[in-house]
């Protein structure tokens, strides 16, 4: 069945230029974005992406002498469309910093220690119920490079493909109860409190040796014919 994409809601999606995040005013277009009709190009998408983007590293925490520093966490992330239908077999890319707030990346000039047992990048495929599970450690907070003046709360970057080209989703997942969440310029660029809340994972009670965080991602798209603007 065909997929329909409706316009973004300005309350639940960021609008581009944000006070307190200087780079946005150099990069977001000054001209209004243009509405276009949706046809086969916009409402189709790659079907065998896992060929080009094969799964890598289902466990970032390691074991024994190779165990990464930090608090063990299991992320259970479910990918759904707007109708609530799970997306099986879709690619999910995950990346986050180590427990001291350091990324293994040439752009990270932050003076925090590298953990030789942690490399924070994984690529997974969702299972039949749209779920990925990733064993990792909880990331630390860090000061934002070259903008000055704010600390990012612990967060996990997520990149997901939905059913069609227009359902691509790149976002971040936050952790519950973090005081830095209240002032984060990226989380708070979302005006609607409910939409912000849905970007924060839920801690599931666990007696095991891993904290369990459940989270849900909703990619754009409903069943139905395209609506012309």
């Amino acid at each position: 069945m065909a997929t329909r994409i409706e316009p973004r809601d300005p309350l639940t999606q960021a609008q581009g230029v944000e006070q307190g995040y200087a780079q946005t005013a150099r990069r977001w277009p000054s001209q209004p974005l243009v509405r276009r009709p949706h046809g086969v190009a916009e409402l189709s998408g790659p079907r065998d992406l896992a060929h080009k983007l094969p799964p890598v590293k289902g466990d970032l925490a390691g074991y024994g002498a190779k165990r990464a520093l930090g608090q063990l966490a299991r992320l259970r992330i479910r990918v759904l469309d707007e109708d609530g239908a799970p997306l099986p077999g879709t690619v999910v890319e995950v990346w986050h910093c180590n427990s001291a707030g350091k990324y293994i990346h040439p752009n990270d000039t932050h003076d925090a220690p590298v953990d030789p047992n942690f490399y924070g990048a994984a690529r997974l495929l969702t299972g039949d119920t749209g779920l990925i599970e990733l064993r990792t450690i909880k990331p630390g907070a860090y000061p934002v490079p070259d903008t000055g003046g704010w600390w990012r709360p612990p967060h996990v970057h997520l990149s997901v493909w939905g059913r069609v080209w227009l359902s691509r989703l790149v976002t971040q997942m936050f952790f519950p109860g973090e005081p830095l969440n209240e002032a984060d310029a990226i989380l708070n660029a979302i005006r609607d409190p409910g939409a912000r809340e849905r970007c924060v994972a839920r801690l599931v009670p666990s007696k095991g040796n891993e904290m369990i965080f459940e989270h849900q991602l909703v990619v754009r798209g409903r069943k139905g014919a395209a609506v012309l603007p």
């Binding site: 707007e82 989703l169 790149v170």
Partner: peptide
């Protein structure tokens, strides 16, 4: 369901 808020890719 409301689509999840998009956020920057970061550096």
């Amino acid at each position: 369901l409301v689509p999840t808020a998009e956020m920057t890719l970061g550096p």
